[in-house]
Simulated assay, not measured.
Amino acid sequence: MDFFAESQYVKGIRLKRDCIPSFYTFPFNLPSIQTLDELTFHPNVTYLVGENGMGKSTLLEAIAVAAGFNPEGGSFNFSFSTYDSHSELDHHIRLIKGVEKPQDGFFLRAETFYNVASNIEELDSEPMGGGKVIDSFGGVSLHQQSHGESFWATFMNRFRGNGIYIMDEPEAALSPLRQLSMLARIHELVRDHSQFIIATHSPIIMAYPNAKIIEFTEDGIQESSLEETGHYKIMKQFFEDKNRLLHHLLDE
């Protein structure tokens, strides 16, 4: 069921191929970018999946920056920069936006989440009127929690609904149980007029019903079902015949 198909915030992206300087340099040399013209997103949840190096996180970062987020993560009003390492891909894509604008949003990426937590500490150390930034993240310093707990606190407290939420490999900080709980929370937020675009390796996280799964491979980009993804197949093979697979991998 599509909860708000007519008012989704980002309908898709289009690659401005005529403006690309060269398809032989990064990130334009990635097969996923070389074959890209346009991608259409699901109004509720879209997953970008694939092996390491296929370009899913690079494209996700470009989508986030083009949508107005800080490359290292945070909400729309985060503007810090620890290390300027993001690609120029965001200059070469065009977001296809819906009619409505999101009232909330967050770019949550495991790789640079520590930097977001540090920036919150810096902001709250400066005298200012009103409450502290950390109050909207649960009120407890993110640096005084484990990586997984701080990540979870952000997801549960800072994601308020009526928003666009972009997440890069959230499973890196979450146990399998928390990943299942994340699906329940995603469902709550979807019903509260939210849209998710998520890059992930986790078959658990990519199991949200009726979501769109876009798989990145050496041959380019293709839409897939959960059961057809390489991630699901390898996990299924492992759990169905663990001993045989381990014997093959470890046999000297």
Rank of each mutant, 00 (worst) to 15 (best):
A184F: 11
P102V: 08
H201W: 13
H201F: 14
S181E: 15
L108V: 06
W152A: 11
A66D: 10
L174K: 05
G129F: 14
E38H: 04
L177H: 15
N243F: 06
K11E: 13
H91K: 15
R158L: 10
A67F: 04
F3C: 11
P21V: 08
S194G: 12
D168Y: 02
F106I: 03
L95N: 05
H143S: 13
M206S: 15
A184G: 10
H247E: 14
R14P: 00
G74K: 07
L89H: 05
I166C: 07
P203W: 09
Y83P: 00
Q8N: 13
P203R: 10
M167T: 05
Q103C: 07
G131Y: 07
G50P: 03
L226K: 13
Q103Y: 04
S136C: 11
I186L: 13
L174T: 04
G130Y: 03
M167G: 01
G220A: 11
T217I: 11
N162C: 11
Y165K: 12
T46E: 05
L142M: 13
S224D: 07
K11L: 04
F159Y: 08
M206R: 06
Q145N: 12
Y83C: 03
Y24L: 12
I96N: 07
I213G: 04
P43A: 07
P127C: 09
T217W: 10
G130K: 12
T35S: 14
D104N: 15
E126M: 11
F3S: 12
I213S: 10
K11M: 07
Q103G: 14
L60H: 02
E6I: 03
K97I: 04
G148E: 10
D251K: 14
E218L: 12
H193W: 08
E169R: 10
S136E: 15
A211P: 11
L15R: 06
E100D: 14
F238V: 03
E122V: 15
A207Q: 13
P43D: 03
N70G: 09
F80T: 02
T112V: 01
Y232F: 15
I234S: 12
A110I: 07
K242T: 12
F113C: 04
S79N: 15
E100N: 13
V49D: 00
V49I: 10
D251G: 05
F106C: 03
V45S: 02
K212A: 12
F107T: 01
L95S: 08
E88G: 00
G74H: 04
A207M: 11
L177V: 13
N77M: 03
F113G: 01
N243V: 05
Q34K: 15
D219S: 14
I166T: 01
I204K: 14
F69E: 00
A66T: 12
D192A: 15
I213W: 09
V133N: 05
V99K: 15
Q144F: 07
Q103P: 01
V190N: 03
V133P: 00
M156I: 10
H248T: 13
L15M: 09
K97A: 04
F113N: 03
F28L: 03
S202V: 07
A110D: 08
Y232C: 06
L95M: 12
S141P: 06
E72R: 09
D37T: 09
D104M: 06
L108D: 00
Q144A: 06
R14L: 09
N115V: 06
L189D: 10
